[in-house]
Amino acid sequence: MSRLLEVKDLSVSFPTDAGVVRATQNLSFHLDRGETLAIVGESGSGKSVSSMAIMGLHNPGRTEISGEINLNFGENNLEVVSAPEEKIRAIRGKNVAMIFQDPMSSLHPYYSIGNQLTESWLIHNGGNLDSKTAKAKAWERAVEMLDLVGIPDAGRRVKEFPHQFSGGMRQRVMIALALINGPDLLIADEPTTALDVTVQAQILGLLKDMQKEFNMGVILITHDLGVVAEVSDRINVMYAGKLVEEGTVDDIFYRTSHPYTQGLLNSIPRVDSGVAEKLVAIPGQPPSLIALPKGCAFSPRCEYVRQVSSHDCKVEIPDSIEVASGHSRKCFLKETYLPAGKGR
């Protein structure tokens, strides 16, 4: 597998009237071709902010970004943080594409589906063709894509408008739009959150097929640990803007190492659990990113604080330590693994 994305020490903050919002701090992670990396964490933990940074979508005037985002597409290599806007525009929608939770926010209500699909194709492929050939090719490609994402009767429906499609169909159209240029990297930000489980199952299946078809690297942002267990190879767990644990899907679920990850896994009910025991909630609330707690950001909610004798969790900030190859966490605890997930 070849390395597609390498993020090093990425920090994104927003200066606001109320203070500086430290949305992500010193993130480092990577993604290979053909691989699915899930990013999980509570609302406001910085999942979307970090993926927007990869797409080069932050407003430079209102955002402070540091670190490196190296994209490796063979000929089109790019370091996004320092790259000029026109270089980013050349890869956005071509090599890197994104789909969002709400398809209506990315589909234009007044243009036909075909119009939107062809436009996206023409921006990156139309240049060296005369306009008539280019248009014909683009429409051909649009119909082909709709067909690929499972829209029945694609030849006819390509002329329809977004409101004529159901929620699940619109999400398929969005996927077609994101994939029309055969991207290397796809970022899916809560792609199924607004959908019913039956439709979610269809869309996740489709994403898997598309990943194979295009040999893409996929970053999947979601709060649903069931979805994560189903589709991801590796997982980044975020808390208050930091990567607190990362590892393979089995590392995270069966060899849980960070107290926050353990808390997340314990707080979800499971349809296959049978017994209605009490859920183990994480006490308290996530911190404000303007006034982060001293020390480990999770310490005000962590039940292990008193068990740590080597350090003071409420004063010192834990560094990332590798607990096994490819599996690391930010925590001072002596025990490497915490009982969670299985065998609860």
Binding site: V197, T198, V227, E230, G341
Partner: peptide, 19 residues
């Protein structure tokens, strides 16, 4: 059958009825 279960081992073996 469409509800994902937060357990990767179970998910790998699961058969889905996709409507």
């Amino acid at each position: 059958s469409a509800v994902p279960i937060p357990d990767p081992e179970i998910e790998r073996k699961r058969e889905r009825i996709v409507l």
